[in-house]
Design a protein around this nucleic acid. Structure first.
Lengths: 254, 254
DNA sequence: GAGTGGTCTAGACCACTAG
DNA sequence: TAGTGGTCTAGACCACTCC
């Protein structure tokens, strides 16, 4: 621990700002295993005293590592090395259910429900689901967790016609839809990256501003009707999606 | 401008930290158009004086907006409202070339070459490309730009057998490969989100720590041989990928 | 040379957590 | 109650840009 925070070696010309030098030292200690997951770092004031830097500078170094998910801070408690998150790979070419997908991997899955009720639809929901006037929407918002670790926030919306009793969904939405003959057979997804906002960051247990994978999905019935409109936000450090691409047809313009 | 930075209204209980209140004010001014792209904000010291806050607090508010790409700071010059980036959608199910894809959209494309030469391969490249001992690798690293705006960093690697003269690639790699009968017909991609590091952020013109879409692609010839191993980093605020999903085959477990 | 953002300091108070 | 992180201040120097 002394090795990480000893005052020597700082300020060598060309080594960059002090907060970056300290940040590098801590990151290396984590990478080389000298600091293990769950280990606590000294209080910020102590780190400042040990290194001879000001607390503001120490904070700046620590903040970046918190932002990239390598450290976790708990007010009143301390600063700790974060548990590494096992990266999960999912094939993006198949239309699978989160619950079923994880079950196949032998992972326990649970959800923390944020919302599971009928609502007056938002304009975006009316558009996406093609809702008629006066039709309600079933919202299923939850934090998806695997082995207790939050992986994603999922906000699904369905026409109340198709799912009048949202409370009937306990685990897999798709399995409930299947029993009603409403499982989508086709879907279109839009994928993008975005910084995770303060509220969602809290739900996912990551730092505000961390990178996340944003996925918007429209699921279709064989008839062409939209069944589900789902917006999900996956932790960037926990999820990989894989896709297999085919050759573009000759002259396929758009 | 006075409206944004007038000292009144701060510190109302329950409104949260001062830096968040200021951050919100500036973000709203941008959202409502009271601040337009290219507009300059007052110097940090002036913002501090106008609001009655310290410069450190002003900086913290500004930093977050720089991080989310809404503001741009240039040392020695000033703080400016960022130009909004038009989001580009790309179908992920077709194997297309960046150059050709953008041309179809009527966008001008150019590249800034970072590297275009033969090298001794890295272990990762040997693995991915299945290189024999002593084989060199052609590296094509560039910043992809559309209408002058950096969109992505692309780092392609090919066996020197297949592309002995990397300098021959001027615009589209795929079109060069096509003339040699080496255009991939199939590819596998891995997509994930990650924070953009300092070096790449500089190349893409975004703030360090902004969200990016990381894509790793292996392109295959009909024979099954790997032609290209490409690692790309797309700006999260500029790119959307769309995918069409099919129903998972019954009992398709792994 | 004047002005800008980038870094750094010492010290303070608050809100929360733990024993 | 003591210790922790969260916020905030006033003031300073440096590196860079622009004139």
């Amino acid at each position: 621990m002394d090795r990480i925070f000893h005052p020597g070696g700082f300020d060598a010309t060309g080594a960059g700002p002090l907060y970056l030098q300290l940040q590098r030292r801590i990151a290396e200690a984590i990478a080389t295993g000298r600091l293990s997951p769950g280990d606590s770092l000294p209080p910020e004031r102590d780190m400042a005293a040990l290194t001879g830097l000001s607390r503001v500078t120490v904070r700046k170094a620590v903040q970046t590592l918190v932002g990239s998910g390598q450290l976790v801070q708990r007010r009143g408690s301390g600063t700790f090395v974060a548990a590494p998150v096992e990266r999960i790979e999912q094939a993006l070419s198949l239309l699978t259910s989160f619950t079923e997908d994880m079950a196949r991997r032998g992972k326990s899955v649970d959800s923390v429900w944020l919302n599971r009720a009928l609502h007056v639809p938002s304009p975006a929901e009316v558009m996406a689901l093609g809702l008629g006037a006066g039709t309600q929407v079933a919202r299923l918002d939850r934090v998806r967790r695997s082995d207790g670790v939050p992986l994603a926030i999922e906000r699904a919306a369905l026409s109340a016609d198709l799912l009048p009793t949202p409370e009937s969904v306990v685990a897999s939405l798709y399995s409930v839809l299947e029993t009603r003959g409403l499982r989508p057979v086709r879907a279109v997804q839009r994928i993008s990256a975005a910084s995770i906002g303060a509220r969602d960051a809290g739900l996912l247990g990551v730092a505000e501003g961390a990178a996340g994978l944003q996925i918007e999905r429209l699921g279709y019935l064989p008839s062409g009707r939209v069944v589900e409109f789902t917006r999900s936000l996956y932790r960037g450090d926990a999820y990989d999606f894989t896709v297999e691409l085919k050759l573009a047809p000759e002259g396929a313009g758009d």
